[in-house]
Simulated assay, not measured.
Amino acid sequence: MKKHTRLCLGAFALTASLVNATTAYAQSSVTLYGSIDNGITYANNVSGKSILMEQGGVSKVNTLGFSGVEDLGAGRSAIFKLENGFSSTAGTLGQGGLLFGKQAYVGLRDHAIGEVTLGRQYDFTVQLEPYMPCLGCGIYAVENADLDRIAGERLNNAVRFASAPFAGFSFGGIYSFAQNSGSLSTNQGRAYSAMAKFERGAFSSMAVVTDINDAPIAVGSLGVTQFLGQRVTPGQSSIFVDNQRVVSVGALYHLGKWTPSFTYSNTRLSNHGVSATDQVWRVGTTYMPIASLTLAGQVAYDRFESSHWEELNLGADYFLSKRTDVYLDAAAERASGPGTVASMFLLGASSTDSQIAVRVGMKHLF
């Protein structure tokens, strides 16, 4: 009897140990995630010629990442993210060949207060993406040289705080130190970004300010011949300006199957005592006639000094499952102003004042 009792007690202790071990394991998790996007794009004029090409990361940037959470108790947790970008057409690393070029940070989260993270991470302008009326229309809907950073740009050596929502309000701030930022960063000098957001019911709005010293600007993609007093050639590599300051706002409202939205950005660029301002207005809507189909459209107007661009974007996205979809995008841009040409983002400058692009593609999330 005593032997039987000892065996039962031993089995109970072993079971309790296994339960505790399983519980401890469940409190810490690492998730592998990512996205793969690829498709065929036709453009009627890039440097004077029509092109037909395979291009990846247009509907969504190709990503492979690891994120982790460890429960510390009392509503607190440790978090981290290591995120890599890559080419789905060639298999090469993105962001200039960096191992974790998209994001690399570690931090702490308190569910009642918010989270603090340190490392390479996006400034808050990227959080305006959901307010873009035609985000589903792909990267061609972004401003020519992404002067307003809405396509998603990172800051190195950054400490970031993002609050938990309080009565519909949330806010955050980022400060990036200048040390060791390097040429593959979007800031060689100090930078900061701050945001305020309000959500209630079907309505959502957000305001962001981002200020960067020694910021790279892709002047060859802008479609102008003069930039801050310097001559620009098509395809010219980025130059660093003394300061880039972006102020942006966005708002949307869910109306059943319709979600109209708009964004406005004001970007001031300064270099060697010369300054210029770029302003972008976008307005449009998404429409879901059925659960598996999203239609979207927007009109955008971009003004950089005496140069102007008007663009129409249309998109149709059909979901084969929750993770896989096929899509069709179309974009048309018209430019005006002295020496100004059309130049859609990631396509390159046209030789004239107009440019048209059509794309069919597929993406998968995992």
Rank of each mutant, 00 (worst) to 15 (best):
S354M: 14
G97K: 01
A178T: 06
T210E: 03
N156Q: 10
D71L: 04
I40V: 15
T225Y: 00
T285R: 04
L108H: 06
N271F: 02
Q188N: 12
S354T: 15
G73I: 04
D302C: 05
V246F: 01
V358W: 02
A196E: 05
F304D: 00
R109Q: 15
L347T: 07
T352C: 07
V224C: 00
D242R: 05
R190M: 00
G339D: 11
S47T: 10
Y131S: 11
D37E: 01
A349G: 06
A357S: 12
V232Y: 02
F169E: 10
W258N: 12
V283F: 14
A162P: 08
D148M: 02
L184C: 03
A141I: 03
Q121F: 04
A178Q: 05
S238E: 11
F161N: 04
D325L: 10
L93P: 10
S321M: 06
G348P: 01
K49I: 11
S17H: 11
G173V: 15
N187R: 02
G68A: 13
A357C: 02
V58N: 12
V360M: 11
V358S: 08
R6N: 07
T186C: 00
T92H: 01
S35I: 15
V280L: 15
L346F: 13
T340H: 02
Y25K: 13
S29T: 14
L7A: 15
S237W: 00
L52N: 11
G173H: 09
V232I: 03
I356M: 10
A194F: 03
P260S: 07
E310I: 08
S265G: 15
L135Q: 14
L320E: 04
F262C: 11
L222I: 14
A151L: 09
H254D: 15
N20A: 15
S183K: 14
V249P: 06
Y301L: 12
N180A: 14
P338C: 07
T63V: 07
A26H: 13
L72F: 06
V116M: 01
E311K: 14
I79Q: 07
T5N: 15
